[in-house]
Every structure is written in structure tokens, then in C-alpha cells.
Amino acid sequence: MIALLIRDFRLAMRAGGGFGLGLAFFLIVVTLVPFGVGPQSTLLATIAPGILWLGALLACLLSLDRIFALDWEDGSLDLLATSPLPMEALVTIKALAHWLTTGLPLVLAAPVFALLLNMPTEGYRPLIISLLLGTPALSVIGTFGAALTVGLKRGGLLLSLLVLPLYVPTLIFGAEMARRGAEGFDTTTPLLMLAGITCGTIALLPFASAAVLRVNLR
């Protein structure tokens, strides 16, 4: 299991794709928003939590189709399916690798981007906690979407269409928590809901992803 994780990590570092791409995309979104809504710092500060969450979500979406597509093309997926690794473990590892290479860097970079958007400092902690709690769910849900569309020729667009509605609950509670934090309100309720969704997703969705992947391999 560790071997697969290490391999995916190596690939992400070397292929020149996965790793920095999400971060760069996040930065571009954050840079473009002021051009779209104007440079007033009060307005930017108000919408900063939402923008950061949306940016993280889109950056995450960007790299989803790489989760299985490359392994599918070169036949690794067939070979992994006949290896001792259970399919459920395989999809979990894939999701974890995706989170480590995409989600975690986004979480770490979020404070810097929050600075660019004039977010009040007391909002940093809830923002980071909400992203830390929410992005794993994004990766796991995204892995399910990637498993659904693996092997489809025009899978990329379909993947977004399938995954985005599934992102709604996570986005709502995550952004709500970040927003309440920035405005100095109590964040307990959205925090618990977000944590609940993430835990439930991580616990249950790999079974669906594995089932879907088995269907796609046959």
C-alpha cells in the first residue's frame, strides 16, 4: 500500500503536472477575482472565504481526471486490480495521494491567498481548519467521479458535471464555516457538519468507487 502511495507521489513530482498545477490555478483564480469585482478591500474581505473555498474546489477538480486516467492508459490499472491490494484500498490510496499532492498544498497556501484578499486575521484559523477538514472529502468524492469516467474518451467534462453536484454539501458547510469565522461568529455547527460529511464520505464512498472501478475494468 505504501509502495503505491510512494509511486504516485514520485509520479506527481516528476511528471511536471499534478503537483504545482493546482496551486498555480488557485493563485490565478485569486488574482482574477479582484479584476472581476473591483479592488475595494472591504468587498474583497467580505467575499474572501467564499472565493478561497471555490478556488480550492476548482483547483481540486482540475487534477481529478489524472487520478486513474494515466494508470488506465498504460495498463497499470488492470495489473493493480489483479495484485494483492483490494480495490477499496487502491481507491483510498489514490484519493489520499490526490489529497497530499493537491489538497494539502492548497490548504497550506490558503493563508497567503487570504492575505491577498484582505481577509481579517481572526478568520485565518477557521479558514484553514475548514479547508483541512473539507478538502479530503473533495478528493474522495473526486476519486469516485474519476472511477466513474475512467476509460471514457471525453470524460473530463462529464467528470466535472458528475462531481460538482456532489460537492455542494461540502462547499456549503466549508464556506459557511470560513465565512462565520471571518465575521467572528461561532463556527461549531458548520464545523461538526463538515467533519461529519468528511468522515462519512471517507468511510463509505471508497466502496462505491471500488465497485465502479471493477465495472469499468471488465
Binding site: R7, R10, L11, R14, D74, G75, S76, D78
Partner: peptide, 12 residues
């Protein structure tokens, strides 16, 4: 099982 594709990663 070994199929038509070898499951080789070009960058490794």
C-alpha cells in the same frame, strides 16, 4: 495477469 499494455511509468 499481463495484458497488451505493460503498466510502465515513463518517468520512473
Amino acid at each position: 495477469y499481463a495484458g497488451h499494455a505493460d503498466g510502465i511509468k515513463a518517468t520512473l
